[in-house]
């Protein structure tokens, strides 16, 4: 079962790929693969942030609204501040929203899940007021297209960004104090507190990370579509959570799987892409997303159950009876 836990996600990826290759040969064309990876990048980057959050035992449901905030801030400010200035502004706004989430969770002591549910509504209300409910666009500022469309060494920029984000994320997760603290908190928050870990501060940083990664996703999104409005990104948080959980990050916290998240994001994009090529209606695609999420969830439970059974046996040998 250890094998399944470690490599299961890659098996699923290969199987999906094979199925869609048989159904639609176009899937494997080079242009489609590159296209697919670019599509993946938007969910994947935010999912990297979400992987941190879920590892630390937190959920951020407000990222869909933060995505809308990003697109709107960019579209309204690129004409004024230029591309670079607007992106810096968007990142700062994102960081502030993340800090707000973190403060609400830690200081008002509300469960992350519920707190970010509320801020999701608030942020969306805020961005709708900011844009007065209207679309804005960057059709006259095509320079920004370089982010989504430019290529470095033959590969599109978003793929490089994704790769960098995941590499950095993995390094932070595995090899820095912050990463260890996140794992410690997700693993046993009470023990982490007693060990002297600054739990509140770490949780606030986690929310900054989810917000900032979402801003990066949102920037790629804007540069690709060149429009922004306050209604974008509904359900985006669910896609990110689905990728994270499907990738094998434990819902109970403590164990994050960055490469699993990335692979899962690719699988999800692949399925979407394949279904589009097959002409499957949008409704059925949503149904499929929900079903996949459920499948991913129950899979985790099944393997966990088998694991605890194993644990119990070994634990007894060492003479512990505490459940």
């Amino acid at each position: 079962m250890r094998f399944w836990e470690k490599y299961g996600i890659y098996l699923i990826a290969i199987t999906t790929l094979i199925i869609f290759t048989i159904l639609t040969p176009n899937v494997l064309s080079l242009s489609n693969i590159v296209n697919l990876l670019v599509q993946t990048s938007m969910v994947a980057i935010a999912a990297a942030g979400m992987t941190f959050a879920i590892t630390g035992g937190a959920f951020d449901l407000s990222i869909g609204s933060i995505l809308a905030v990003t697109t709107s801030v960019l579209c309204k400010n690129v004409p004024i501040l230029g591309i670079f200035g607007a992106i810096v502004l968007a990142l700062s706004v994102g960081a502030v929203l993340g800090v707000m989430n973190g403060l609400i969770v830690t200081k008002l002591r509300i469960q992350t899940f519920v707190a970010t549910l509320a801020t999701q509504i608030i942020y969306r209300g805020g961005v709708l007021i900011y844009t007065q409910g209207r679309d804005s666009d960057l059709f006259r500022y095509l320079d920004i297209k370089v982010i989504a469309g430019g290529r470095v060494l033959g590969l599109p920029v978003p793929i490089w960004i994704t790769f960098t984000v995941f590499l950095a994320g993995y390094m932070i997760y595995k090899h820095t104090q912050f990463g260890m603290w996140v794992r410690a908190i997700g693993s046993n928050e009470e023990a982490a507190r007693i060990s002297g870990i600054k739990v509140d501060r770490t949780i606030i940083v986690i929310f900054v990370i989810t917000a900032v990664t979402t801003v990066i996703s949102g920037t790629i999104y804007t540069s690709q579509l060149l429009t922004g409005n306050g209604r974008l990104g509904v359900g985006f948080e669910l896609e990110a959570i689905t990728a994270t959980i499907l990738g094998g990050t434990a819902l109970a916290g403590g164990k994050g799987k960055f490469w699993g998240t990335l692979t899962a994001a690719i699988i999800l994009a692949l399925m979407k892409n394949g279904m589009n090529l097959l002409g499957v209606q949008d409704f059925y695609q949503r149904l499929a997303t929900g079903l996949i999420l459920l499948l991913a969830l129950s899979m985790g439970v099944v393997s966990e159950r088998i694991q605890t059974r194993g644990n119990r046996a070994t634990r007894n040998q060492s003479g512990d009876t505490n459940e």
Partner: peptide, 9 residues
């Protein structure tokens, strides 16, 4: 989480 998935479905 379960009801979140069912929300989609």
């Amino acid at each position: 989480i379960a009801t979140l998935a069912m929300l989609f479905i």
